[in-house]
Nucleic acid binder design. Sequence first.
DNA 1: TAAAATTGATTGAACGTTCATTCACTAGCT
DNA 2: AGCTAGTGAATGAACGTTCAATCAATTTTA
Lengths: 192, 192
Amino acid sequence: MEPIQDKKTLLFESALELIREHGFHGTPVSRVAREAGVAAGTVYTYFNSKDEMILELYKYVKLKVLTEVSTKDNPELSFQQRFFAFWDHLTSLYLSKPAFQSFMEQFVSSPYNTPELQQSTDLWGAWLGKFFEQGVAEGALRPLSPQILAIMVIGSVISLVRYLTYFKSKTQSVKGELTQIPQMVWDGIKNQ
Amino acid sequence: MEPIQDKKTLLFESALELIREHGFHGTPVSRVAREAGVAAGTVYTYFNSKDEMILELYKYVKLKVLTEVSTKDNPELSFQQRFFAFWDHLTSLYLSKPAFQSFMEQFVSSPYNTPELQQSTDLWGAWLGKFFEQGVAEGALRPLSPQILAIMVIGSVISLVRYLTYFKSKTQSVKGELTQIPQMVWDGIKNQ
DNA sequence: TAAAATTGATTGAACGTTCATTCACTAGCT
DNA sequence: AGCTAGTGAATGAACGTTCAATCAATTTTA
């Protein structure tokens, strides 16, 4: 591996974890550097500013999510099977990397997230668009725009994961029912 | 009205708007005070710290949402009718007060939001619980725990509103389809 | 009733701290 | 020796918070 990428990745991972615990402004650049094992100044050989670091971190995470989910997708299966697999992969990814989920949520609801940023080339959004488009084309999904379908699905994944994160304790009682959530979402979006 | 509540409310409204635009840490206490027409020090006669102000603001907003939605609910209608009305009221509320939605999202995904806070008495959560419980009791909804049903519904409302907020421009094309979202959610949660 | 005294909310300059960013310097490699 | 990458102390701006001083309103006193 190129050492440059290695150190950048180290900084990303360190920032992710700190931001999850303390938020954007609770994590000083100096702390990110320390946890990554470098000096404060070094951060500025990789990024021009803290803000730029956070913007790049956003792209880094989005790309990771895309890679994870898209490589596990198997377009030869029926769309219904693909949907349940997609749900599973996305949910497990977020649950296994809580910092991903936490960072992404903080980011999208922060002033970092501008309409311009959302409209700049967005591989993850594009992939999602294609995915749901195929479902419609195959007649498996209601004939709606992929964006609308994505709203339904991603929204439910996010709030499920958030629920599991904040109510770890209470989960015992309802754990059995959780598997029904993707089923409900499916029943909502499938061609009736 | 007691002048004390008036000034507190002024501070709340000023903080809400500033936090929407600049985030928690982009809004200095001094700025909140200025916009509310008081001096910086005055904030500290109403709150012990900035953090405490933000925590109280969270409760203030949650209570407003509860009041708005619960007073408009009419338990004499069929549950299906109540559901669509609920959806409509919550969506319109968030769309008409973007600062509510933005603040709540920032708050819940920030480190301010602890599991303890979520588990402390939460009138909004309690009301939601009862609402969906009734749907199940009437046989209108799948026999699932109210929490799970709330996940589905609230998650979709939030991501719909977020979508509308960030893609105001693109909305023309899909506007007609937006009304189908509550229908999809309903089809997912109703007793099949 | 009018002046004086008291009260407590409000002010905003000042304080101490934190933090992002810079830069003179060093270490390590070719 | 020259070059690049890395260091971490120094800088200065911004912020949360404090507090002595002010002011308006109310109560007491004569």
